[in-house]
Nucleic acid binder design. Structure first.
Lengths: 236, 236
DNA sequence: TGGAATATTTTTGGATCCAAATGACACTAG
DNA sequence: CTAGTGTCATTTGGATCCAAAAATATTCCA
């Protein structure tokens, strides 16, 4: 049996919490830790442990957990604890189908309105991705690259949903990158996508994006079907 | 100055709360009251008042308010209270643009898979809408009719977003119905939509749905630009 | 030795209490 | 008469306490 180190050990607290913003700090810290995978799926978070970790009482922890539950990042089961929402295969396929729908529309609306500075910003993210090797940072840069391309879509509500989807992807992405070095492939996709956007070729951009996302779901499906993951799921 | 009756007076509590499900009961009650407009936009909800009303302490009220905030039904401002989220015009246009995107896709996926019983259920809702005159009930039936048509779409995540959008619409709908008797028009739309779905004519269904929703946003825009509403917004 | 029933322990949810922050009101000074 | 300042009340956020429910461990009996 593999040792099961307390997942909380991977959360670091930067010192005493400013007291009256405890809830938001805890929520943000936990969200980041869940999204980038420091807290694995299925881990049960207990209120008292988190309270001790952050040096506060259980109260702000409770509220933070509820907020995260509302964002469906974790499921709170009565008297059993807050369990980090699992990444099941069906969900991955559904998530990517949704992303294609939402991000295609966002891209369609945004490309004609993109400014030069947006394109330069996106290019910078591609450059940074070239040299970055930390998974968490790669996830962040990937999200920022995509959001920059969508940023001029005149529908904030749509953008909010797109961003939620990208946050969700960061969870998958971490596993992708660890499992198989997919980074280079994605970089080619990114460059082609930026090129099409710079030429204001809406339909080609959308096609490239769909292709990019379809390959993403394929890779993830293969990963979730891999013997390693299958075994882990059986053991749970 | 118009008298300002406590908005809480329109919430009725059915007796003592079963103690260990206080939070969920409060959340559901408040959500329903906000969605169907019994609590008007801009109303400030105070924790102690709600606690007294439900006969519990402030604690479950707090958690319920946070949950509702996460669903962006209200904005919690520190030391100022929980304010019911406003219905501004920009939001309406954006919301309907999103609904068209999401519901078109849901309909496209669902129509080929609809069973006879689904079609019968949808027809029943249309019949009930024919005789119903209570705004709250009309909103509920309208939502159920649409959801029935989408119900077979094989993407639960998409359906969740669609349902959120429909819940949001119920808030607008109440004002629509009060302002102008739009009921009959919608009924014709509904019947045509059901007919197209029954004939498995996907593209015609989608076209009809888009038309239906586009008329919705038009009516709402007109309503929000009406002198009455303009005056109310200025006074705030 | 195995299973079932019970007791203990763990953990969450609600109540009450306290502190901090913000807004309103009144009072004073110019 | 107005503007600015200071105090007070209101309200939210956090801490602590208590009760209820569930999981687990232990013990007893077959």
């Amino acid at each position: 049996m593999t040792q099961k180190p307390n997942p909380l050990s991977r959360i670091k607290v930067n010192g005493p919490i400013p007291a009256h913003m405890a809830r938001s700090v805890i929520e943000e810290t936990l969200r980041a830790a869940i999204l980038d995978g420091r807290i694995p799926c299925g881990a049960a978070l207990r209120q008292q442990d988190l309270a001790d970790l952050f040096g506060v009482s259980r109260m702000p922890v409770r509220e933070a957990l509820r907020q995260l539950e509302a964002q469906s990042l974790l499921n709170v089961v009565a008297h059993k604890g807050a369990v980090v929402a699992p990444l099941v295969q069906g969900d991955a396929v559904e998530t990517y189908a949704l992303r294609i729908l939402l991000e295609s529309e966002a891209l369609r609306l945004s490309v004609p309105l993109l400014r030069e500075e947006d394109l330069e910003e996106a290019a910078r993210y591609i450059d940074e991705l070239e040299t970055e090797s930390d998974y968490t940072e790669i996830g962040r840069l990937n999200r920022l690259f995509h959001m920059t391309l969508y940023s001029q879509a005149p529908n904030r509500r749509l953008l909010k949903l797109v961003e939620d989807g990208l946050n969700e992807e960061e969870r998958f992405l971490r596993f992708n990158l660890e499992a198989m070095g997919l980074g280079k492939l994605s970089q080619d996709d990114h460059k082609a996508l930026l090129q099409a956007a710079a030429e204001r070729d809406v339909e080609r951009s959308v096609k490239l994006l769909e292709h990019h996302l379809n390959r993403g779901v394929e890779v993830i499906t293969r990963y979730l079907n891999s013997p390693e993951v299958q075994a882990r799921n059986r053991s749970k």
